[in-house]
Every structure is written in structure tokens, then in C-alpha cells.
Simulated scan of single mutants.
Amino acid sequence: MDKKNALRAGALAAGTTLMMLLMSSPALALTRDDGDDPGAGLSVAQTLGLYVLCPLALFAIITGLVMVLDKSKTRVTKPAKARAKA
């Protein structure tokens, strides 16, 4: 029964994706709308910095702040072998 459900879900996902691709029309992106005023394009370095480095830096900053400002008390416990001998 699991194979049948997985096959049904895969077919539904593939069909939905195919319909979305067919319904979107990238050819219309070439025609300009009224009031459309695009700016200058980004270079490769600017694109990588904006979409890769900035999110990674933000993630690192948030992670660092959480680690530094963590107020939980961590208990140092002895290993199991040391407890058994004592």
C-alpha cells in the first residue's frame, strides 16, 4: 500500500510542477510594462555576496549570539566507568 501512495504522490507532484511550468510564460518577461524602470544589473561578485555571503554571515552572527548569551547551566558529569568504580 505504501508504494501505491508514494507513486500517487509522485505523480501528483510531477503533474502539478508540469502544469505550473506550462502556465508560466517566460516569453512575456521580454515585454516591458508601463512605468517599468529596471536598474543596472549585478556583477557575479555582487550576486554571490548578496545571496550567499550575507545569509551565511547573518546565520553565523545569530548562532554566535545564541551561543554566547545562552544562560542554561550545563552539568559536568563523570563518565559511566568512573561512576561504576566509585
Rank of each mutant, 00 (worst) to 15 (best):
T74K: 15
C54F: 11
P55E: 02
V44K: 13
A14F: 10
K78I: 00
T74M: 05
M1T: 11
D34A: 12
A40R: 05
T47L: 07
R83K: 15
L53W: 03
K85F: 02
R8E: 12
L28A: 05
I62E: 15
G39Q: 12
G41W: 00
I62D: 13
P38I: 02
L53S: 13
A45K: 12
V76A: 12
L12A: 14
P26D: 06
R8Q: 14
P26L: 03
L28H: 07
A14I: 12
V76R: 15
I61R: 08
S25K: 11
P26R: 05
L22T: 02
M1I: 05
P38N: 05
A45H: 04
D36Q: 14
D36F: 15
A86F: 02
P38R: 05
V66I: 15
A84R: 11
T63K: 13
Y51V: 06
A27C: 12
G35D: 01
A86H: 08
A9V: 04
A9T: 11
L53C: 09
T47R: 11
L58A: 15
N5S: 12
T77L: 12
A11V: 07
A84V: 00
D33W: 13
P26Y: 06
L58Y: 09
T31G: 06
V52R: 02
L18G: 04
A29Q: 06
A11K: 13
I61K: 06
V44M: 11
